[in-house]
Every structure is written in structure tokens, then in C-alpha cells.
Amino acid sequence: MGVVTPRCIIVRHGQTAWSKSGQYTGSTDIPLTEFGVQQMLKTGESLFRNNQFLNPDHITYIFTSPRTRARQTIELVLKPLTEEQRSKIRVIVDEDIREWEYGDYEGLLTHEIIKLRKSRGLDVEKPWNIWRDGCENGETTQEFGLRLSRAIARIQNLHRKHQKEGIPSDIMVFAHGHALRYFAALWFKLGVEKKCEEDWELSDLESYEDETVPYVKLEKYRHLIDNPNFLLDAGGIGVLSYSHHNIDEPALALAGPYLTPAEEESYHEPGN
């Protein structure tokens, strides 16, 4: 009880030209707008300097999408930290948390995707739902769910290890709109569970390079079949944690990045 509960702080990259226009941005590698740059500089100042919502000494890892907009956001957010503080945080580029591969829908707006699918004779019985239907010539929801499930398993494994060692552990994840909303939903065990049976589900993909992060082989994973109804605008931050200091009870920290002092924490019986 003396050690703060581990947390996973999710950060969506700052504004880009396409996040502003609403275009689906998966593999297209575009930078932040000038507004996005200033937006994330202010976020960093708020998190670490003005309001001190995060203790930089508690950040053990940062996992990031390989896309420029995510990695640029990290640099801007961490700017208030000293070189020594930044040097203690391991930054891991992880392909598993890249944005949804949109395939034929890359760069399109939602109404354009709906029109395209209609021209192809799709969605006759019910409207398109990306969380259920995925993307033509892109990723299915099962493929997306599998790689995000792998990332979650690694992060929770690190949290379990750090908790046993008595190490405060905030792990930050810098990624994208669909990826982080999907990630949060799976953190709470939403969607459906599927056993790893097919070759693509069983294959051991090397999505990152870091010897300090153990690979966790999954026997099963989760994927969504409907919209989780979570919102996360460009530059937005969310905090995922655990109930009762228990890694097996993932939960949403409604207080966001603010950490309640240990002596002020209220006690809740398990299940409450």
C-alpha cells in the first residue's frame, strides 16, 4: 500500500492537418501543425511544470507509435524535463501501437468512405461500423485488436514486475485516435475474447526492440465488435490504472493525470 498504483498514461498526438480536417490518417506520415506544436508544448508545461500532474521520476517507459506525429509529440511534451530526467525514461518504438491500417480509406472522410462502400455494394443490411467491419484492403478489427492486446499484455507485465519491486511506474503511450480509444476499451476487457488459433494469430512478430521489455506470448486476445463510445481529441490525455492496487483489475482513473496523495485515498472493498 506504500507504493502508488501503476498507471498507463495515453497521449494522442497533437493536431495535424488531417486530424483537423477529419481525414483518416493511418500510415501517412505527416507532422504536427504549428497549432499542434504549441498545443503539446503547453501540455508538457502543464503536466510537468505548472500543475505538476506527473512526476517525471515515476515514468519508467514510453511506448510510441513509429509515426512522426507521435514521436514529435513526445519531444514537445517532455521538453520541461532536464536531460537527466529524460535519460532515465526508456522510449520504445512499437509497431503494435501504430494507427489502424485504413487501406482503401486512407485520407478519406467518413462520408466519402460510406459513399465508396455503397458503390461497392456493401452495407446493404446495416451501416458501416469500423469497430466491427474494419477496412477494405486494410486491417480487420481482429488484426487490430490482436496487436493492441499484445501491447497491453507487455505493459501490464511491466507494471506487475515494478509493483513487486516497489518501483513507482507510470508508463506513457503516445499514439493515435482510433488506436488509443481501442486500446482503452481492451484495457477494460470490452469486446469479445478469441483464442489464438490461426497462423497469423500465433506468429511471434517483433514489433519493438528492447531487451528490458519481455515479450508476452498470448494464448487469447480481445477485439471489439462495436464502438466503445470513447472520445480522445488530438492532444488529449487519458489515464488507465488498476482498482485495489491489483494488476488483474484494470480500471479507468477518472481523475486523469492528477494523483491523489496516499493518505487521502479512500478505501473500497473489492467489487466496489
Rank of each mutant, 00 (worst) to 15 (best):
V3Y: 15
R7Y: 02
T16E: 11
T16H: 05
T16I: 10
A17T: 14
S19V: 02
I30K: 02
I30C: 10
L32Y: 08
T33K: 00
T33A: 08
E34G: 05
F35P: 10
V37L: 04
L41A: 03
G44F: 01
L47R: 00
L47I: 04
N50F: 02
N51H: 14
Q52W: 02
F53G: 12
L54A: 06
I59S: 07
F63N: 06
S65L: 01
P66L: 01
P66Q: 04
T68H: 01
A70V: 04
T73K: 03
L76Y: 12
L78I: 10
T82K: 01
E83M: 13
E83P: 09
E84P: 09
S87K: 11
S87N: 12
I92D: 03
V93Y: 00
V93L: 00
D96P: 03
D96N: 13
D96G: 08
W100E: 07
E101V: 13
G103S: 08
G103D: 07
Y105A: 12
E106W: 04
G107V: 11
L109W: 09
L109H: 12
H111R: 06
E112R: 00
K115L: 11
K118Q: 14
R120A: 09
G121R: 03
L122H: 09
V124L: 13
V124A: 13
E125W: 00
N129D: 15
I130V: 13
W131E: 09
W131N: 07
R132M: 02
R132D: 04
R132T: 02
R132N: 03
C135D: 09
Q142S: 12
Q142F: 00
Q142I: 01
R147G: 04
L148E: 06
S149K: 02
S149Y: 02
A151Y: 01
A153Y: 11
R154W: 09
I155Q: 04
N157I: 06
L158N: 10
L158V: 13
K161T: 15
K161D: 15
H162S: 13
E165R: 13
I167L: 08
S169M: 08
S169F: 09
D170V: 06
I171T: 09
F174Q: 09
F174N: 06
G177H: 05
G177T: 07
R181C: 13
Y182T: 14
F183D: 06
F183T: 03
F183W: 03
A185E: 15
L186I: 11
W187A: 10
K189R: 15
G191P: 00
C196H: 02
C196F: 00
E197P: 00
D199G: 08
S203Q: 14
L205P: 00
E206R: 00
S207Q: 01
E211I: 06
E211L: 06
T212C: 13
V213K: 05
V213S: 12
Y215V: 13
V216N: 05
L218M: 08
E219Y: 00
H223R: 01
N227I: 09
N227G: 08
N229V: 10
N229C: 12
F230M: 07
F230A: 06
A234P: 13
A234D: 15
G235V: 04
G235P: 05
G236F: 04
G236A: 07
D248E: 15
D248N: 15
P250T: 11
L252G: 11
A253L: 14
P257W: 05
P257G: 09
L259P: 11
T260H: 01
P261H: 05
P261I: 05
A262I: 14
E264W: 11
E264I: 03
Y267G: 12
H268G: 10
H268M: 08
G271I: 05
